[in-house]
C-alpha cells in the first residue's frame, strides 16, 4: 500500500481541446502527486488557465482523460462532479468574487454552501483566512471597492477557507506588488507543508515558480515541453526553455 505522500492526486492523459479552429492542447500528459506543488509555466495564450478549468470539469476536453483522486471526471455530468469539486479549491485569474456579496460573505460562501451552520465557526474561519491574506478589517467592503491585488487575495482566502485537499491557483501573483507576491508564495508553501495541500499553480512569474515549486511543467505549443524539478529547469540546455526563463524573445518565431 502506497502512502498518501506518493499517491497520484491528479492524472491527466492525452488532453486535447480546441476552440473552433484553434487547437489549444494537443495532448497533455501530467501527473501531480498528493501533497506536492506543481507549477505550470508557459507563455500567454498557451492554455494554462484552460488546463486548470479542464481539471475540475469547468471545460470539457475534446479528448483525453482527467482523474482526480483516482476518479475519472470525463464522463461525469455536472451534478455528479460535485463530490470531486468539493475536494478542490480554485483561485481564478481575476478573482471571480461575487459582486453582490461583501468580502466576508464571499469568503464565508463556500463554508455556508457546504453545510456549515455554526456562525461562530464560520466567523472564526473567515477571520483567520482574511488574516492569512493580510486583509483583516476589510470584511465589510464590497468587491468593487477593492484593488485588483486585494480582490485576488480575497479570492485566495475563499479558495482555502474550506480547507480543500487541493488548490488550483491561476496566476496568484500577477498584478501584485513584490512584497504581497512574496507573502502569497510563502502562503502556498505553508499550505503545502502544514496541511499537505496538493497545489497546481499556473504562472509566468519565474521568481514565484522557483520559490514554490516541487516540480515545474512547461507548457509549449499545446504540450508539456518539459517536466522536472526547478533545478533541472534551471540547468536545462534547451534554448526554448532558456529563452522563456530569461525572458528572451525569439525573433524568428515572431516573424513566422
Amino acid at each position: 500500500m502506497m502512502s498518501d505522500k506518493t499517491s497520484t492526486f491528479i492524472e491527466v492523459r492525452d488532453l486535447q481541446i480546441a476552440f473552433g479552429q484553434q487547437k489549444i492542447h494537443r495532448g497533455i500528459n501530467l501527473k501531480v502527486q498528493a501533497g506536492e506543488t506543481m507549477v505550470v509555466i508557459g507563455g500567454s495564450g498557451e492554455g494554462k488557465s484552460v488546463l486548470l478549468k479542464e481539471l475540475i470539469g469547468l471545460l470539457r476536453p475534446d479528448q483525453g482523460s482527467v482523474k482526480i483522486d483516482g476518479e475519472e471526471i470525463g464522463g461525469l455530468k455536472e451534478r455528479a462532479m460535485a463530490s470531486i469539486r468539493k475536494k478542490v479549491g480554485i483561485l481564478f485569474q481575476n478573482g471571480a468574487l461575487f459582486d453582490s456579496l461583501n468580502v466576508s460573505q464571499n469568503v464565508a460562501f463556500p463554508l455556508i454552501q457546504s453545510g456549515v451552520s455554526d456562525q461562530n465557526r464560520i466567523d472564526e474561519r473567515v477571520t483567520h483566512c482574511l488574516e492569512v491574506v493580510e486583509l483583516s478589517n476589510q470584511g465589510e467592503k464590497m468587491p468593487v471597492q477593492l484593488s485588483g491585488g486585494m480582490r485576488k487575495r480575497v479570492a485566495l482566502a475563499r479558495a482555502i477557507v474550506n480547507q480543500p485537499q487541493c488548490v488550483l491557483y491561476d496566476e496568484p501573483t500577477a498584478g501584485l506588488d513584490p512584497i504581497v507576491s512574496d507573502s502569497i508564495n510563502k502562503l502556498i508553501r505553508r499550505l503545502q507543508k502544514r496541511n499537505k495541500v496538493t497545489s497546481i499553480v499556473v504562472t509566468h512569474d519565474m521568481k514565484s515558480a522557483f520559490h514554490i515549486a516541487d516540480r515545474i511543467a512547461y507548457l509549449y505549443q499545446g504540450r508539456i515541453y518539459f517536466e522536472g524539478t526547478p533545478e533541472e529547469l534551471k540547468n536545462s540546455d534547451d534554448q526554448q526553455i532558456k529563452n522563456f526563463i530569461e525572458g528572451v524573445s525569439d525573433n524568428h518565431h515572431c516573424l513566422e
Binding site: 469547468l58 462532479m81 469539486r85 478542490v88 481564478f92 481575476n94
Partner: peptide, 10 residues
C-alpha cells in the same frame, strides 16, 4: 467567471 466560481464550489 462568477458562474465558473459557483460551479467550482459544486
Amino acid at each position: 467567471e462568477q458562474i465558473d466560481a459557483l460551479r467550482a464550489m459544486a
